[in-house]
Amino acid sequence: LIQVAPVEVVALCDVDKKQLNAAATLVSQRQKSRKTPRLYNNYRKLLSENKLDIVLIGTPYHWHALQTIAALKAGAHVYVQKPISVDIMEGEAMLAAARKYNRVVQVGTQRRSTPHLMEAKKNIMDAGLLGKISHVEMYCYYHMRNNSNVADKVVPDYLDYDMWTGPAPMRPYDGIPWRAFMEYGNGIVGDMCIHMFDAVRWMLDLGWPKRVSSTGGIYVQKEAKSNISDTQTATFEYDDLNCVWQHRTWGTPVNPDYPWAFTIYGEKGTLMGSVNQYDFIPEGKGEKLHADVVLEKEQYPEDVTEAGIEIHSAPATRQHMRDFLAAIKKGGRPVADIEQGHISTASCILANMSMKLGRPLVYDHQKRQITNDPEANALLQRPYRKPWVHPQPDMV
């Protein structure tokens, strides 16, 4: 955000003192005023002591709902990372709060702002080069599941582990990255499927799926503490169209050039897209089209030396921030509005629920319930650890 707008970062919050101090140093070096932001370990205190225009939320997923709603109540516009929530009712409450307080919420599904995918949407999808589309495949074959099985550890003195855990169940501290556990997120479907499914919905102008089904589990990597699936297939059904997801955290990718991507099949051709490139393959003798990711290393040389940066995603994130700011200025909806983030997040959660229950699910978003399935409806809202209180869409 600092790269694309003259913003002043006035406050930072983290329950990890090391992370907090490192972030403060970086911000003071980057922003024009060279001021060090005020530092907090409790987001509620930060919001009560500062009048903020914008709040950026990059916390673990189990915190997104409470922090987003609190920021909206405080009058701020919000940029929140994906997935927006761990359960569906959290997402409903976040959407209700954004509309009630008339604030802009941009979700970090930045494939919608990825330059080469924006080009593919305009020149291929919107131009009708694929013809009628009746099948989509989405997939991830990264070996990204944590397969360690370490002993519990003493909580380091720089980490407030109780506050880090917040509304989630209290697990013994072991230092294993939190994405390995369903207590804090939605597994690889919530991490990776959401990006590709959201990109496909954007490209094809799709809303809520009519039905969601999924199978999978821990088939191979059984030795780990992690409780997220290592193998999973999910189907998101629309009229005359299925969008099918698959991930494996073992084995080889189907296409080494597209290990995490989508493939859209039309009667006139096929479009493959990823964070790195796209390829259009026409039916018959038409012209093949290819484009690579747009990097901005000359314009933003700090991209090259930034620790831990995904340099291929930096231009998309900057464009996503510009779109966020434009929506605030104009009073409209951003490209990844909270409603779109909710649909993509909730659909992925439904896939995990379907895998757990062993049957397809139909979600009625107007009634906020799953049709004819009391057992599934009981999973729409997970229990919060006391004293935290689960938000309700009618009471935000």
Rank of each mutant, 00 (worst) to 15 (best):
L350K: 13
Q392F: 08
Y142L: 15
I176K: 06
Y161E: 05
R34Q: 09
A346E: 06
Y79S: 02
L1H: 05
G187D: 08
D160T: 07
I194N: 01
V362E: 11
N123Q: 13
R103Q: 15
Q81Y: 02
N102H: 15
N123P: 00
Y384W: 14
E296F: 01
L47E: 03
A5V: 12
I338E: 00
Y40C: 01
T233Y: 08
P282N: 06
A351P: 04
D205L: 10
I2T: 06
S313Y: 12
Y43V: 07
D162L: 15
D303M: 14
D239P: 05
L66D: 03
H143G: 02
M118S: 01
M125A: 06
H320C: 07
I133A: 05
L289E: 04
I54Q: 00
R171T: 09
I84T: 00
P393L: 02
L1D: 01
D303Q: 14
V293R: 08
S134Y: 05
H135M: 02
S213F: 04
T231R: 10
N42D: 10
Q319D: 03
G266L: 06
W260H: 14
L379G: 08
Q110R: 10
K17N: 04
G251K: 09
D191V: 15
V155E: 05
A70T: 14
A151R: 14
E223M: 11
R34F: 06
Q3K: 14
G207L: 10
P383C: 12
G331F: 05
E183P: 01
D53R: 15
T345D: 02
V244Y: 07
K225E: 03
Q340D: 07
Q81W: 00
N102T: 15
D394R: 06
A70D: 13
V244R: 12
D126V: 08
A316N: 06
A378R: 15
D364C: 08
A76P: 02
L357A: 07
F181H: 10
I84P: 00
N276A: 11
N242I: 04
A127V: 11
V154P: 00
A326E: 06
E296W: 06
G273W: 02
D126Y: 01
D191K: 15
Y61W: 09
K122S: 11
Q221P: 02
V212H: 11
D160H: 05
I84V: 07
M353V: 12
S148A: 04
L56Y: 03
W63A: 03
R145I: 02
L130H: 06
A351H: 03
Y79D: 02
K73W: 13
L47C: 09
N186Y: 03
H247I: 08
G266I: 11
G128Q: 07
A346D: 00
V362P: 01
D53N: 13
A24W: 06
E119K: 14
G269D: 04
L52D: 07
V4E: 08
K45P: 02
L72P: 03
